[in-house]
Amino acid sequence: TFTSYQLEELEKVFQKTHYPDVYAREQLAMRTDLTEARVQVWFQNRRA
């Protein structure tokens, strides 16, 4: 599960791009204290 802060950050990036590159995902992962893999999976699920 994600915190409301994490979801907010993820959604913010999703609004800009549905396909963030690895750099964007790593920045987001650091900001949200998630792994890059978790961020990647979240985007895959969000796009589905």
Results as ranks from 00 to 15, higher is better:
21 D>I: 02
36 E>A: 11
4 S>G: 08
39 V>K: 00
42 W>F: 04
13 V>T: 09
18 H>F: 10
25 R>T: 11
38 R>Y: 08
47 R>T: 04
15 Q>K: 10
25 R>S: 05
27 Q>D: 11
23 Y>F: 10
3 T>W: 06
10 L>R: 00
31 R>E: 06
8 E>V: 11
41 V>F: 11
36 E>I: 09
37 A>F: 12
7 L>K: 05
23 Y>C: 06
43 F>P: 01
37 A>N: 09
15 Q>G: 07
37 A>V: 11
34 L>W: 08
14 F>Q: 01
7 L>H: 07
34 L>S: 06
41 V>P: 00
41 V>L: 15
16 K>H: 11
4 S>N: 11
8 E>Y: 11
17 T>F: 07
7 L>Q: 08
17 T>A: 06
18 H>Q: 10
10 L>M: 10
22 V>G: 09
28 L>T: 02
31 R>K: 13
14 F>P: 00
16 K>F: 12
32 T>M: 09
28 L>P: 00
35 T>F: 03
18 H>W: 14
44 Q>V: 10
47 R>Y: 03
48 A>V: 11
2 F>Y: 12
11 E>L: 03
44 Q>C: 08
36 E>D: 08
8 E>N: 10
48 A>C: 14
38 R>E: 15
20 P>Y: 05
7 L>I: 12
17 T>P: 00
36 E>M: 12
45 N>Y: 11
24 A>F: 07
43 F>G: 00
9 E>N: 03
26 E>K: 14
12 K>G: 06
45 N>A: 14
5 Y>D: 10
5 Y>L: 09
30 M>F: 10
27 Q>M: 09
14 F>M: 01
22 V>Y: 15
32 T>F: 09
25 R>L: 15
25 R>C: 08
38 R>N: 12
45 N>C: 07
24 A>H: 08
12 K>I: 07
32 T>G: 02
28 L>D: 02
31 R>I: 14
9 E>A: 06
3 T>L: 07
40 Q>H: 14
8 E>M: 12
31 R>M: 12
5 Y>S: 09
46 R>Y: 02
30 M>D: 09
19 Y>M: 05
28 L>F: 05
2 F>N: 02
45 N>V: 12
11 E>W: 05
27 Q>P: 07
27 Q>A: 14
21 D>S: 12
24 A>W: 08
11 E>F: 04
6 Q>Y: 03
30 M>A: 09
3 T>N: 09
29 A>N: 07
24 A>M: 15
10 L>I: 01
38 R>M: 15
29 A>I: 08
13 V>W: 07
5 Y>Q: 09
14 F>A: 03
17 T>S: 12
6 Q>D: 01
26 E>N: 11
13 V>H: 06
24 A>S: 08
35 T>L: 05
19 Y>D: 05
31 R>V: 11
32 T>L: 14
45 N>H: 09
7 L>R: 06
19 Y>G: 02
19 Y>Q: 10
40 Q>M: 15
36 E>S: 08
48 A>D: 12
47 R>Q: 07
20 P>G: 02
46 R>L: 02
19 Y>T: 06
34 L>A: 03
46 R>E: 04
39 V>Y: 01
35 T>S: 12
7 L>G: 03
5 Y>M: 08
30 M>V: 11
40 Q>Y: 12
23 Y>S: 10
27 Q>S: 11
44 Q>Y: 10
40 Q>V: 10
24 A>P: 09
4 S>T: 13
46 R>N: 03
